[in-house]
Amino acid sequence: MSERSAEASASTELDVFLSGPLFLDIVFSGLPTAPRPGTEVWASGMGSLPGGIANLAVATSRLGLSTGLATGFGDDVYGRWCWDILADEAIDLSHSARFESQHTSVTVSMAYDGDRAMVTHGHDLPLSYDELITEPPDARAVIIDLDDERARERWWRQAGANGAKIFADVGWDPSETWDAGRLDALEDCYAFLPNAGEAMAYTRADSPRAAARALAERVPLVVVTMGDDGAVAIDSGSGEECHVPALSVEAIDPTGAGDVFLAAFARGTLAEWPLEQRLRFASLCSGLAVQEFGGSLAAPGIGDLHDWWQQLDAAHGEGDPDATALREHYRFLPDVLPARPGRVTRRADATFALESDL
C-alpha cells in the first residue's frame, strides 16, 4: 500500500521533472585510508542527508528551477525526515508516494583519496515509475538516467513528446561490456552528459573529445565531463565545440558533484545561455559543491553564487591576478543571477539537527 502526497500538483508548468530511487545517505569524509577488516578509521567529517535522486532534485531547486519529483519514500523515520527536508527545499512531491511497511534505502559513502566507496542496502519500489507517475506533469525539461529499465520507461518519452527537453545521463555498466545498444534511447533525447570513462567505453574512442564527437552523431547536444580536466561539449546542430577547465578548488567530498553539474547545465540551457557560459556555470556549481560535506545538501544555492562572486570581486579589487583572470571568465554571472533572489538559498549542515528529527 502507498500514500500519495496530500499536496496539490502545481498548476503552472514545472521547469524540471525528475524520477528515481531515494536513499538516506550517510557520508564520511576526510578518511586517511580505506577502512580495512579488523581496524577502525576516524573520519574528519560526517553528514546524514537525502541521497540518490534527491541530489539532483535539490540541486535544480536551489538553482531557481521549479522542480517536481516522483520517488518512493519508506514509512520509517528516515523516510519521513527525507520527505520533510525535500518539501522544505521547495520540491513538488505531488507525484511521490509513501509506501507502508517499506524501510528507506540507506547508502554509506566513504570519501578518501579524491574519490569515494559506497555500501548500500535497500529494496526496489513495489511498482514501476510509469505506474507511479501515470501522466507526467507539464515541464520544460526532464532529466533521466538511461540505465537498463529506466531507458524503457514510457513517461519521459511522453514528456518529451509534450515539449520537454530530455537531458540524459548513464551510469557505470556493471557488466563492463559497454554495449552501445544501451544508448539507443538517445534518439529521444536532447542532451547527453556522460563522464569521460563512460563516453570512451561506449564509443571505443581513445580520448574524451573523440568520444564526444562520436556521441554528437546520436544526440543534438553532448557534454563529456572529465573531472579535474573540466568538460567538453559539442552542439551538433551548430557544430560548436567548447572546452572549459574545472574550477580549481580543494575538494572535500565529491558526492553529488555530477548531479550539480547536470542541474546547472540544464539551468543555463533552459535560459538559452551561450554554450561556454553553460559549461562555466556548471563547473562553478560543481566546484562549490565538492567543498562541502554530503551530496544533496552541499548543492549551492543562489545565495552561495552571490557570495562567491562578491569574494572574487573583492580579491580582484585587491589586485589578485588569479582572481582577475577568473573574474574575466565569469563576468557574465551578475547578469544571469537574480539580483535579489526571492528565496536566497545556501548550503545547509548535512546532519540531523535535533533529537526530534529522529
Rank of each mutant, 00 (worst) to 15 (best):
R331N: 09
R62V: 08
A117W: 06
T39R: 11
F332Q: 02
T67M: 04
L63R: 01
G342M: 09
D304Q: 02
G74V: 10
V249N: 03
D84K: 06
P274T: 12
V219W: 10
W172T: 08
S94I: 11
E13M: 13
L22H: 01
T60Y: 04
G52I: 12
I133H: 02
P136E: 08
E318D: 13
D75C: 12
W308F: 15
L193A: 02
L132M: 15
V142D: 00
M46G: 00
T225V: 09
L18W: 07
E241N: 02
G230Q: 08
L56S: 02
A353D: 14
W172G: 00
L18H: 03
S248Q: 15
R327V: 04
Y129R: 04
F23E: 05
S96Y: 02
A314L: 12
R150A: 12
A210I: 06
C285F: 12
W178D: 08
P50I: 11
G287L: 15
D148F: 10
E176A: 10
E355K: 05
L22R: 01
A233W: 07
A201W: 08
E198L: 09
R204P: 00
D113A: 15
T120I: 08
W273Y: 13
D115Y: 07
S94D: 10
G38R: 06
G303S: 06
L354Q: 13
D320R: 04
P50E: 09
Q102W: 13
A325E: 14
A43M: 09
D115C: 02
S11D: 12
H316W: 09
D173K: 08
S207Y: 08
C189G: 01
V41C: 08
M200S: 03
A298Y: 05
F192I: 10
I133S: 01
L193Y: 04
G239K: 04
E276C: 13
G64N: 02
L14K: 03
D235I: 11
A282C: 11
L354E: 14
S356N: 07
F192Y: 07
M1V: 10
L358V: 12
G72K: 03
V232Y: 12
P174H: 07
P21N: 14
S94N: 06
A263V: 13
T269D: 15
H243Y: 07
L31Y: 04
A266T: 15
L31P: 05
R182D: 07
N55V: 06
S5C: 12
H121S: 10
T60D: 06
A251L: 11
D84S: 10
A168E: 01
F99Y: 14
A168F: 03
L65S: 01
A196I: 05
M226C: 15
C82G: 00
D335Q: 13
L86P: 02
V344E: 02
Q277S: 08
D235V: 10
L288Y: 05
L262G: 02
F167H: 00
S283R: 09
A59R: 02
S19F: 14
E217A: 11
G20F: 01
A314F: 08
A212E: 11
S207P: 04
A314S: 07
E89W: 01
G160V: 04
P174R: 10
T120E: 10
P274W: 13
G163N: 02
A161I: 01
M118C: 07
A97H: 09
F17Q: 03
W83P: 00
A214W: 03
I144P: 00
D322G: 02
Q311E: 14
A348W: 03
R213H: 12
D148T: 06
F28S: 04
F261Q: 06
